[in-house]
């Protein structure tokens, strides 16, 4: 359910459509259907996980992830590659998300900014890791429905050391 934070009026059908898109977004990752997942994004999309809680931009500061469509596709190719040694023991993930909130509709672009809390468990080889934080989506409203222009992931422990991070949150 998308909660309207600023009480803005939008068509119920649009809310439902955004809701469906975001459900699919997480579920495709949970099911490792990465190609279908990438198809939900615009050509000029960005996947960004800042390294610091206060980080405002990604050009002059390192990030945990900062990828355009080309780099996202590269990650997907590697995840599917038979000689990805680190994945020899398999990797499985499960994302659980909280209610989505429409934070803002950008006046210039018409993009929707939607936030939701998440938890992700990841099983790889001999260990399970837990991640938690906030997903912030920028959704492009197009003729044929919404596409994701940006997914931003703010981990609660973004500034802590991590073992390698291989899949998208």
């Amino acid at each position: 359910m998308i909660v309207l934070v600023e009480g803005r009026r939008v068509a119920r059908s649009q809310l439902q459509e955004a809701e469906r898109l975001l459900y699919r977004e997480c579920e495709l990752l949970n099911r490792e259907l990465y190609e279908d997942w990438l198809a939900l994004f615009t050509d000029d999309c960005r996947y960004w996980a800042p390294l610091s809680p206060e980080q405002e931009e990604a050009q002059l500061h390192s990030s945990l992830f900062h990828e355009d469509r080309t780099l996202m596709r590269m990650r997907i190719t590697r995840l599917k590659h038979e000689s990805a040694h680190s994945l020899a023991g398999g990797i499985r993930t499960s994302r659980t998300v909280g209610p989505a909130a429409l934070r803002e509709i950008d006046h210039a672009s018409g993009d929707w900014v939607v936030e939701r809390r998440f938890q992700m468990s990841e099983r790889q080889g001999d260990r399970v890791r837990m991640f938690a934080g906030l997903f912030t989506y920028r959704l492009q409203s197009a003729e044929r429905g919404f596409l994701i222009r940006e997914k931003r992931v703010d981990l609660i422990d973004c500034d802590a050391p991590h073992e390698p991070l291989e899949v998208f949150f």
Partner: peptide, 8 residues
């Protein structure tokens, strides 16, 4: 980065 495609 921990997310490097090379590092894992």
């Amino acid at each position: 980065s921990p997310s490097s495609l090379v590092k894992p």
